[in-house]
Amino acid sequence: MVSGFRRSVSLPGSNPSSSPARRRCEKPHHLRSASLPCRSHPAISHLLDQIRSFSDFGIRCSPASGLDRIDRLLSALDDILRLPQAQDPLRRGPAWADRLLDGFLRLADAHGSFRSAVVALEQHNAEARAAIRRRDPVRLDSAARSHRRAEKELIRLATAVKDLARCPPLICSDAAEAEVAGIVAEAMAATAATSAAVFLGIAAASSAVAGSMSKGSWTAWPSRRPSKKGSEEAEMAAMEKLEECMEGLEEGSGRVYRSSVNIRVALLNILTPSL
Score class of each variant (00 low, 15 high):
residue 62 S to H: 12
residue 48 L to F: 09
residue 103 G to Q: 01
residue 38 C to Q: 13
residue 64 A to K: 03
residue 92 R to P: 07
residue 78 D to F: 09
residue 20 P to L: 04
residue 12 P to V: 05
residue 103 G to T: 02
residue 58 G to L: 11
residue 15 N to R: 11
residue 108 A to G: 08
residue 23 R to T: 07
residue 15 N to A: 13
residue 96 W to P: 01
residue 45 S to Q: 08
residue 61 C to M: 13
residue 48 L to T: 14
residue 64 A to S: 11
residue 47 L to A: 00
residue 36 L to S: 01
residue 77 L to N: 03
residue 93 G to N: 12
residue 107 L to Y: 04
residue 12 P to A: 06
residue 18 S to G: 06
residue 19 S to V: 09
residue 68 D to F: 08
residue 52 R to V: 12
residue 41 H to L: 04
residue 84 P to K: 02
residue 30 H to P: 04
residue 88 D to Y: 05
residue 100 L to R: 00
residue 71 D to P: 04
residue 53 S to I: 07
residue 110 A to E: 00
residue 97 A to P: 06
residue 60 R to M: 11
residue 29 H to Y: 14
residue 92 R to G: 03
residue 91 R to A: 00
residue 17 S to G: 09
residue 93 G to E: 05
residue 34 A to R: 05
residue 115 R to S: 05
residue 36 L to I: 08
residue 39 R to A: 15
residue 115 R to I: 03
residue 99 R to E: 14
residue 96 W to R: 03
residue 119 V to D: 06
residue 78 D to I: 08
residue 117 A to N: 11
residue 63 P to S: 02
residue 98 D to V: 12
residue 81 L to Q: 00
residue 57 F to Y: 15
residue 63 P to T: 02
residue 45 S to E: 14
residue 81 L to A: 00
residue 21 A to Y: 03
residue 28 P to I: 10
residue 105 L to T: 13
residue 87 Q to L: 03
residue 91 R to H: 05
residue 40 S to I: 08
residue 80 I to N: 01
residue 53 S to G: 15
residue 96 W to L: 07
residue 107 L to G: 02
residue 16 P to F: 12
residue 48 L to W: 09
residue 117 A to Q: 04
residue 84 P to A: 02
residue 79 D to Q: 08
residue 93 G to S: 11
residue 24 R to F: 09
residue 110 A to N: 02
residue 93 G to H: 04
residue 27 K to L: 15
residue 79 D to C: 07
residue 119 V to I: 14
